[in-house]
Nucleic acid binder design. Structure first.
Lengths: 200, 200
DNA sequence: ACTAGTACAGACCAACTAGTCTGTCTATAC
DNA sequence: GTATAGACAGACTAGTTGGTCTGTACTAGT
């Protein structure tokens, strides 16, 4: 049996399976054997593409999570006429994506942050850079809103954006703790109130 | 050598060591051997007091973390003249407790929540009950503030309290991700702004 | 004082898990 | 076409980890 080889795709499959396993069990809880079982690949393939479990974790952050967050927030914020409406729209999307049949697993980025940031500098730097990028997209949108006069001049875009991102993660985290989507809705309603105070 | 025995204290030492290990490495990352090394005890002692690692985790939540949160928030909120000022005071205490020489490890309760809530129903229920208690203390204080006329009547205490707790955890979580206390200060300043909007 | 249950010590085990190594098949360069 | 490097398979290992089990010393009730 002649096997067709496609190393790039093999690597992607490993990354995708690892992302799922990490999302479900955390990085430390993720087992390489389970990633291999998901993909049907063997140890030989894995360690050909990744030097270690740690390197796999870094690659998931670099190649899956960062790209996901970039795709999700960058252009949505960049081409937003109203930054607050754009954030609200993203929150609506997050709600729509919740699968009521599955446990609430929260935000993949924040999950890794809370687990790994104090334990591993490589994780921490990558995570921080994604958060800073995310906050930066919101801050830039707020600053453009100020230029357009729809956001109050007193608002500090970076500070407000930090809080918006922090509050989103907080609301998601509480919903995860309670395993109740209604918690997110309650929490989010107040984030909405806060954001309205940023308008001029 | 005649060893003095004190089973209650032995159990407490195990719980305290386990709490520290969980706080540093997470529940899954916590190793029983390391708990024993911290205490100088052996397997025999451990499995006499706890049926399993899972039961230890439950006990840490029930006997350490819940008690800690109760002691920290209950009476402070109960005897608060001004609920917002009381929360601010607690935030000041949290800042004061940060040790600049150690990595920012965040909130022990939220750490466990983000790691274990979707994985283990026993953890999830215990964590949720502590969060609900915490939120309840804040909500009750807000309601009393409304009765006194210092909190606006339009405020829904439970919803506002949920957001306050969520935002606190979000701010702490971001500071943990960035390993930068300044992130918490920025984030918190906006939580302060939000809370001011609750006044009448 | 005796006994029975309690509170441990510490050796041991079975399962798991990250990582290694050798071999083989495939693709690519020439 | 052939050599060389890349892309895997899969058996194997060494270390770890939660948990068990037996034995023993302590303690409380009678």
């Amino acid at each position: 049996m002649s096997t067709v080889r496609n190393p790039d795709q093999t690597r992607s499959r490993l990354l995708e399976a690892a992302y799922e396993e990490i999302y479900q069990n955390g990085f430390q809880g993720m087992r390489i054997d389970e990633v291999l079982a998901r993909t049907g690949l063997k140890k030989g393939a894995f360690y050909h593409h990744f030097a270690s479990k740690q390197e796999l974790g870094y690659a998931v952050l670099d190649d899956v999570i960062e790209k996901f967050m970039t795709g999700r927030w960058l252009e949505a914020m960049q081409q937003a006429d109203d930054p607050i409406a754009a954030v609200e729209s993203k929150l609506d999307m997050m709600i729509a994506e919740v699968d009521p049949n599955e446990p609430i697993r929260g935000c993949p980025l924040n999950n890794l942050a809370q687990e790994m940031a104090p334990l591993d500098a490589g994780f921490q730097q990558r995570i921080d850079s994604v958060f800073q990028f995310w906050i930066g997209t919101v801050a830039d949108a707020l600053a453009r809103g100020q230029a357009k006069g729809i956001i109050a001049a007193r608002v500090k875009p970076q500070v407000a954006a930090t809080f918006i991102v922090g509050a989103i993660e907080g609301c998601v985290g509480l919903a995860k703790a309670s395993q109740n989507p209604a918690t997110f809705l309650d929490c989010r309603s107040q984030l909405t109130d806060y954001m309205q105070t940023l308008r001029s």
